[in-house]
């Protein structure tokens, strides 16, 4: 059913720390790997070894430069995947009921056998979280690794989305954002977690932690004292050498 549930018991989602992300794209690859081998149609590539390779991905890492009015510019790596919105516009536009939001945990999923590949859900998503698979011609999106997080056949430590499990920087966190006491909710409260495009009214579940302010260190050169000239004017041989070398074409004046 493409109507949204009025309430979900949990709000499973991600908290992404823009301060910590180093832009290594490991989450992109882990996501592609897991979701090509497991739930639903594999994430296809076209012309993978040719001149114009492309493919479907559920998670991509952008990089932005932020230039404040004063001070140095800052580079921010920005992973982006489905935000599992509370008011998901992608779900309500679906004509077949293939897109749905789960009542039990709030995950937004696509039933691929019902998808006609019209692409309207991707039109409705402001975040670019949905991509049409170029081979299967069905809509692909982040499942929050629904086949990992409840999977009792894998060790408990692995029961997290592949992107979170693989992140070497610890920039991605997974949990229940409806529970104010969960680690992710506390992280959001502590660090001022934010919504992307709040004006679109999608009420995203995933939150982004803004980069922390940079330390302001007074300008100080540790080598400075050692590089001070020992003497401004020399005497004797040194003075003669200095004068002679300076007189040569191209010599330091």
């Amino acid at each position: 059913m493409t109507s949204l549930p009025s309430h979900t018991d949990k709000k499973l989602g991600l908290v992404i720390d823009l301060d910590t992300c180093v832009g290594c794209h490991a989450c992109v690859i882990a996501c592609k790997g897991w979701n090509t081998e497991n739930y639903g149609a594999p994430l296809a590539d076209t012309d993978a070894y040719g001149a114009k390779p492309e493919g479907s991905f559920l998670n991509r890492v952008h990089s932005y430069e932020v230039q404040p009015e004063t001070g140095a510019a800052q580079l921010v790596h920005f992973p982006k995947s489905c935000l599992h919105c509370d008011d998901a516009p992608c779900v309500t536009v679906c004509p077949t009921g293939a897109s749905y939001k789960r009542v039990e945990d709030g995950i937004v999923l696509v039933n691929e056998t019902d998808c006609i590949g019209c692409g309207l859900c991707a039109w409705a998503c402001p975040y670019g979280a949905r991509e049409m698979d170029p081979v299967e011609q069905v809509m692909k999106k982040c499942t929050l690794c629904v086949d990992r997080i409840y999977n009792e056949n894998i060790p408990e430590v692995d029961r997290q989305p592949a992107c979170v499990r693989t992140c070497p920087a610890g920039a991605r966190h997974f949990g229940d954002l409806a529970d104010p006491n969960s680690a992710v909710s506390q992280l959001v409260a502590e660090r001022g977690g934010m919504d992307l495009m709040p004006e679109q009214g999608t009420k995203p579940v995933n939150k982004y932690l803004p980069p922390r302010p940079k330390d302001e260190v007074p300008e100080f050169d540790v080598l400075g004292p050692y590089l001070e000239p020992v003497a401004e004017t020399g005497t004797g041989f040194v003075a003669w050498l200095d004068k002679t070398l300076s007189a040569l074409p191209g010599g330091a004046k």
Partner: peptide, 16 residues
Amino acid sequence: ATGLGGRGAVRQFEPP
């Protein structure tokens, strides 16, 4: 879109 607008002028540094 990036939530970074309050910190300064945002531009794409490198596409994904």
